[in-house]
Amino acid sequence: MDATFWAFVGLVLFLAAMAWIKIPAKIGKSLDDRADAIRKELDEARKLREEAQSLLSEYQRKRHEAEGEAEAIIAEATHEAERLTVETNQALEDMIARRSKAAEDKIAQAETQAIAEVRASAADIATAAAEQILTAKVKDKVADDILSKSIAQVKEKLN
């Protein structure tokens, strides 16, 4: 008997002991358990992926909605700014027109007042001149009456 024979006998005894202890069944059960655990992990990963995909699509939808709202807000703000610009320009034009009208009214009033002052001054000068002329040419009581009436008439007509 040589060493090869004893190695063969040892191998047979080892395999018989493994079969008797049911090692192949335990290895198979262990592999089955491992396959089940991997299957569960894959199912869990698939569920997580689906949830992540769902969250991603929801966030993308919300982002699109937010972008739409932002664009609407920007458009509204632009429209409001344009409207306010038009209103402000119109108000400025109205204010300029009112101030121009007020300035023209003041100028017209000043002209009217200046004309009235010139007329009054002219009337006073004419009255004084008429008084001097009449006092130099007409004398006595008749002259005084005529002079008084004339002065009164000139004052009434000039004012």
Rank of each mutant, 00 (worst) to 15 (best):
F14I: 10
A19C: 13
Q60Y: 05
A16Y: 12
D36T: 15
S54Y: 04
W20Y: 06
Q60S: 07
R34H: 14
A25H: 09
A45E: 06
E58V: 06
S30P: 03
W20G: 11
L55C: 02
I23G: 00
L56C: 06
D33F: 01
K26P: 01
K26R: 09
A37L: 13
I27G: 03
Q53T: 11
A17H: 01
G28A: 12
D36H: 08
R46V: 10
L11Q: 04
E44A: 15
A52V: 08
R39Q: 12
K26V: 03
W20C: 06
K40N: 13
D43F: 05
K47Q: 04
R49A: 06
E44N: 07
S57W: 02
S54K: 07
R34E: 09
R49N: 07
L55F: 00
K47T: 00
K40D: 12
K29Q: 15
S57H: 03
Y59D: 02
R39I: 09
K29Y: 00
A45R: 14
A35P: 01
A25T: 12
L11V: 06
A17K: 13
E51Q: 03
I27C: 03
V12P: 01
A16D: 00
E44Y: 02
K26M: 01
E41I: 04
A37G: 08
E50C: 06
R46K: 13
L48T: 11
L55A: 03
R39S: 08
M18L: 15
A52E: 02
D32E: 15
A35F: 09
A17G: 12
K29T: 13
R34A: 10
Q60K: 14
Y59H: 02
K26A: 05
Y59R: 01
Y59Q: 02
E58Q: 04
W20T: 12
K22S: 12
S54R: 12
E50T: 08
K29G: 14
L31H: 05
R49C: 01
S30M: 06
S30H: 13
L48M: 14
D33N: 15
L31I: 07
P24L: 00
L11K: 12
M18D: 01
K22E: 12
D43V: 09
Q53S: 10
L56M: 13
L42E: 05
L42V: 05
L15A: 08
A45H: 06
E50H: 03
E41Q: 05
K26Q: 04
L42T: 14
E44F: 05
R46P: 00
V12W: 06
A35C: 07
K26N: 01
R34C: 10
V12N: 05
Q53A: 10
R46G: 08
R34F: 10
R46Y: 08
Q60C: 04
P24Y: 00
V12I: 06
Y59S: 05
S30T: 11
D33M: 13
